[in-house]
């Protein structure tokens, strides 16, 4: 009964979020985010129907939908990257390099598994596969957030809300799936409740972010740009003076 209530609450919140997207003309600005919400909304209804009328095929439908949702969800990270960094080519380049580094690590890890002949577990352990994808997502979001923080990129409340909600969802998934794969079936019942109820929380974060009429940060006209090597050498000179002073102080 409780799980049905949470399920219905999720459907209602997703519907309200979609309505807000239409009413606030946010669909054009955040196409991937609202595609994701629409997909999860339809997925929830489909899973509800399958759960009621054809319970035997529920796991297959669930995992198929889950993998599609994972792919669509990854596009949200791309959307935030596009929205937040399009005016900042330097930061965009740093973020690209960080994401490439994470991608290279992932490819290397998969390559190691493949050469060990251990790739067959993917077909048998869907939770393991989801956890691996979630970990890659988690590191991608972490890299993006670090770059946004270090370079103090101004973000609207909408973008912050989307990133916070999705990032927390990924972090919770990594946490839950790790416990599930470690403790096995004994944790499964808690996992089901934790997953569904935490999703309600993320929906509320998104609703709160989307409901706030926060204006986009105003991009003031920037001064003419210097060459990066000039900027870096200026900074190095200023730092060198500081270091020289510290060396004197150490003596």
């Amino acid at each position: 009964m409780l799980i049905l209530c949470i399920w219905w609450a999720g459907i209602i919140l997703e519907f309200v979020l979609l309505l807000r997207g239409v009413q606030g003309r946010l669909l054009r600005r955040f196409p991937f985010f609202f595609s994701y919400i629409l997909f999860v909304f339809l997925q929830t209804i489909l899973l509800y129907c399958v759960h009621h009328w054809n319970r035997a095929s529920y796991p297959v439908v669930y995992w198929t939908c889950q993998y599609i949702a994972l792919f669509v969800g990854s596009l949200i990270v791309f959307e935030i990257y596009r929205l937040a960094l399009h005016s900042y080519p330097g930061t965009s380049r740093m973020a690209r390099n960080a994401l490439l580094f994470i991608f290279a690590l992932t490819v290397a890890k998969v390559f190691v598994y493949q050469t060990n002949g251990a790739l067959s577990w993917l077909a048998h352990a869907p939770t393991e596969l989801e956890r691996s994808v979630r970990i890659v997502q988690a590191f991608s979001i972490l890299a993006l957030v670090c770059v946004l923080l270090i370079y103090a990129i101004p973000c609207s409340r909408h973008v912050k809300g989307i990133l916070a909600g999705y990032g927390l969802m990924v972090a919770t998934s990594v946490f839950d799936l790790s416990l599930l794969s470690h403790f096995g079936d004994s944790f499964k019942k808690i996992w089901v409740y934790a997953q569904i109820s935490s999703y309600l929380f993320f929906l509320m974060i998104w609703l709160y972010a989307m409901w706030s009429p926060a204006p986009e940060p105003v991009h003031q006209p920037e001064p003419p740009l210097e060459d990066y090597s000039r900027i870096a050498s200026d900074t190095q000179q200023e730092l060198a003076k500081l270091r020289l002073g510290f060396r004197k102080a150490e003596r």
Binding site: P89, Y151, E222, L225, E226, D227, Y228, S229, I231, A232
Partner: peptide, 9 residues
């Protein structure tokens, strides 16, 4: 300054 530089290293 560097966040706006196109040729950031």
């Amino acid at each position: 300054n560097s966040r706006l530089a196109h040729n950031l290293s």
